[in-house]
């Protein structure tokens, strides 16, 4: 009934290694999530008092993280790794954002020198991990813009991988239209908001 592709043995070994890494990162993530939930509960107890979950958001059951064997990757995919950026050390580097056209995630040729420079930096600093964020202007629906922002971040990641940066060092996050660089409501602001930004970390 289900049209899933069979993998060869090499691919299976790769998947097993990924599963091992995944479970290792799960332990770290669970710790983080439980800590965060603890903060959430404590904070809400002395909050404004009108929330309906003030009295006991307690614990997080992470059953979504205990998935079975994943059969879903196909040729051409560049799977993302779990990187727990919250427990990494931020490296302060102000790298110029890459800007995009309206409703597209294609990197404009004029912006490619920035991506090349980014790849050079990541290759020169092999301890760096990179978080690429994707952003949109405020036009379009909110949920569609989250997807578009993800694609913008993914397109940067894909080029970096092709330029020689290891895939497992790059993670993406979309912020949709929610974190505008310019809060204005005109073309000049929108141009600044269609972008990808870069944050660097070390373990």
């Amino acid at each position: 009934m289900h049209a899933f592709l069979n993998k060869n043995k090499v691919e299976e070994r790769r998947m097993k290694m990924e599963m091992l890494k995944k479970y290792a990162s799960i332990a770290i993530m669970l710790t983080t999530v439980v800590m965060i939930t603890g903060c959430f509960t404590n904070e809400s107890q002395d909050g404004e008092g009108n929330g309906s979950i003030n009295d006991g958001v307690s614990g997080v059951n992470p059953y979504g993280l205990t998935d079975g064997i994943d059969e879903t990757f196909v040729d051409g995919d560049m799977p993302l790794e779990n990187i727990d950026f919250q427990n990494l050390n931020a490296v302060e580097i102000a790298f110029t954002p890459v800007y995009f056209g309206y409703n597209t995630f294609t990197i404009p040729s004029a912006e490619m020198p920035k991506v090349n420079a980014l790849a050079d930096l990541m290759i020169a600093e092999p301890s760096y991990l990179l978080l690429v964020s994707g952003h949109c202007d405020e036009r379009g629906t909110i949920e569609y813009n989250v997807s578009l922002g993800e694609y913008r971040a993914q397109s940067i990641r894909e080029v970096l991988i092709r330029l020689g940066v290891e895939a497992e060092r790059i993670q993406t996050v979309s912020m949709g239209e929610e974190m505008p660089a310019d809060p204005g409501h005109n073309e000049s602001a929108w141009k600044q908001n269609r972008r990808s930004e870069f944050a660097f970390y070390t373990r």
Binding site: V33, I53, G56, G64, L80, N82, V146, Q154, V173
Partner: peptide, 23 residues
């Protein structure tokens, strides 16, 4: 990073449903 949570309004609890890398 974006993750999916379930909030039970009867028990005031929240559980993590999906937090794969990325979106």
């Amino acid at each position: 990073s974006p993750a999916v949570y379930k909030v039970n309004l009867n028990t005031n609890s929240r559980e993590l449903i999906s937090s794969y890398p990325g979106m």
